[in-house]
Design a protein around this nucleic acid. Structure first.
Length: 271
DNA sequence: AGTGCGGCCTGTCCGC
DNA sequence: TGCGGACAGGCCGCAC
């Protein structure tokens, strides 16, 4: 489910609730996620104070006085703040007591997500150490993208979704950004000019920022930390619109599978 | 080194 | 109504 805007929306929702709270009871009902939830999570976490709620790529990093709790939402994960009396449902795998009768609850039907503990510097962790730049920060530039694209033949859309190139751009926002930039998703990345790469970087930034402003994209099950839905779905120009008219030129939107993922584009606007 | 694919899971929807 | 298959927002690890 969640790409960067969705994870950032969750982060922003958790931040004011969690900072300063002391972690209480930790209950792991199902430890078989993408990676096993550490057996000693409760003993490491219980009693720790939350200092910060951070994000790197699509990873949530909850900083405590003892270390970091890493949460990844995978395809179907949500994190909700609920009351202690709120009975867990089938896929509510991890509950973390946060005081004031509240629980931070991790739900993930498909179990592609992760809940891990990190001692020391989280950026040195194996999962985070080799990630590319954050798309909304200065390290993400057309120049840098263009340089990395030299002599590569991969499709620009697949390249854009490579976390070593840039993080956080998933399947929805890759199609959306390429439509805005007027670049065909199948174009070999080594044949995209520097100028068009700069345009693409600008479009990625715009799309992500607008999606964050709308609270993310809810297609099926995405929810913000407070249970609200995300409203960017109504602003999607190509994703999920196969056969419908392009918003700019009325050409029917095309769909194909690229790198095993559904890809949407307008053959009129994207050369 | 770059590329392409299998696999991890459950739920939903569609055609027969 | 039931059943098989395709598909779904992510991403690691492995072959070539």
């Amino acid at each position: 489910m969640p790409e960067l805007p969705e994870v950032e929306t969750v982060r922003a929702g958790l931040e004011p609730v969690l900072i300063g709270r002391r972690i209480g009871k930790v209950e792991v009902r199902c430890a078989q996620l993408r990676y096993p939830v550490p057996a000693d999570l409760a003993e490491r976490l219980s009693g720790a104070r939350v200092l910060n709620v951070k994000r790197r790529a699509k990873y949530l990093l909850i900083e405590t006085g003892r270390g970091h709790l890493l949460v990844h939402l995978g395809m179907s994960g949500t994190v909700q703040i609920v009351g202690r009396g709120d009975a867990p449902q089938k896929h509510d795998h991890v509950d973390i007591g946060i005081g004031k009768g509240q629980i931070m609850r991790f739900r993930d039907p498909r179990r592609f997500g992760a809940v891990l503990w990190i001692d020391g510097d989280p950026l040195a962790h194996k999962l985070l150490a080799h990630l590319g730049p954050e798309p909304l920060l200065d390290g993400f530039t057309g120049e840098q993208m263009w340089t990395k694209a030299r002599k590569r033949r991969a499709a620009i859309k697949v390249f854009l979704m490579d976390s070593k190139i840039v993080v956080g751009v998933g399947n929805i926002y890759a199609s959306e950004s390429l439509w805005r930039a007027g670049i065909h998703p199948k174009r070999a990345v080594g044949r995209v000019s520097k100028v068009r790469m700069e345009k693409l970087v600008e479009c990625v930034r715009e799309v992500l920022a607008e999606a964050i402003a709308q609270g993310g994209t809810t297609l099926n099950d995405f929810k913000q930390a407070n249970g609200e839905l995300g409203y960017f779905a109504q602003d999607l120009a190509v994703y999920g619109r196969e056969g419908e008219p392009c918003l700019k030129c009325k050409t029917p939107i095309q769909r194909a599978v690229l790198g095993q993922r559904s890809t949407f584009w307008c053959s009129g606007c994207q050369g």
